[in-house]
Simulated assay, not measured.
Amino acid sequence: MPDGREVDQAELLGVAKDEDRARSLLRALRTLSTGPDPKLREMARGVLRGDLTAEQAFTDPEYTAALFSGADKIRRAGERRTDAEAREAGERFGEWQQARRTEDEREDQDQGEGQGQGEGQGTSQSDTASRTDPRTAPQQPARPWGGVGGPGGLGGLGGSRPAGPFGPR
């Protein structure tokens, strides 16, 4: 934050549970801190400054209402888009995901270099193996959201959706 200190990933581990989620949460908070919704900006800036814990922010009724309202707007917009728009969005999401992975790898390398990787520091052999050995590498879905059959198929983006237990959406 320009006006003071900003929390780091480690401070978000309590709510995020692991490093990747903490990094993602930190990015989301940074995005929300400059976004159009004044309530979400207030919440994100408070968490980033350390004035408010993530737990407090996510349990505050006003902030959770703002979060759910934003999610509902996104859901409705997704339901109104055409199949072509859904395919295009799926392609853009795949590109975004790849760029994000590249950025994460670059950050990991920068952090490793910043620690002066000597004996016993930095990347462990198991970390290196999981990045290079396909048997130990974490499996990523081939398509956004782990869908099968392409953007309009089962679990993919867009297309018609099966009716849920409460009828069609």
Rank of each mutant, 00 (worst) to 15 (best):
D104Y: 05
E119L: 14
R131D: 03
T102M: 13
P138T: 05
T123A: 15
R135G: 05
E105N: 12
G116V: 03
D104W: 05
R101H: 07
Q115L: 15
G120R: 01
S124I: 05
G146Q: 00
T123L: 15
Q98K: 13
E107K: 10
E103D: 10
P141Y: 01
Q111H: 12
Q139W: 10
R106E: 10
A99I: 03
T136A: 07
Q98A: 14
G147N: 01
D108M: 11
R131I: 02
A142E: 06
R106N: 08
T102Y: 07
Q111G: 05
T102L: 14
T102F: 08
G118P: 02
G147V: 03
A137V: 03
S126T: 13
Q121W: 06
E105M: 14
P141R: 00
R135Q: 08
G116M: 04
V148S: 09
T136Q: 04
S124T: 14
Q117T: 09
G120L: 02
S126I: 08
P134W: 01
T102Q: 14
G116K: 03
Q121Y: 06
G149A: 01
G118W: 02
T136E: 01
E103R: 14
E113K: 13
G112N: 06
E105V: 14
G112I: 11
D110N: 07
G118I: 03
P138K: 04
Q125V: 12
Q109R: 14
T132K: 07
Q109M: 14
V148G: 11
S126R: 10
Q109S: 10
G122R: 00
Q125T: 09
S130T: 04
P138H: 03
P138Y: 02
T132W: 04
R100D: 08
W145P: 00
D110S: 10
Q117V: 11
G116F: 04
G122L: 02
Q98R: 15
T132E: 08
A142C: 07
E103S: 10
G112Y: 06
V148K: 11
A99P: 00
D127Y: 06
R106T: 12
P144Q: 00
E107Y: 09
Q115T: 07
E119M: 11
Q125Y: 11
Q115E: 11
D104G: 05
Q139E: 13
Q121F: 06
G149P: 00
E105T: 12
Q121L: 13
A129C: 04
Q98E: 09
G116W: 02
G120W: 00
Q121H: 10
S130A: 15
D110C: 04
E119H: 09
P141A: 06
E107L: 15
G146L: 01
W145L: 15
Q109H: 11
S126V: 11
R101L: 15
G120Q: 00
P134N: 00
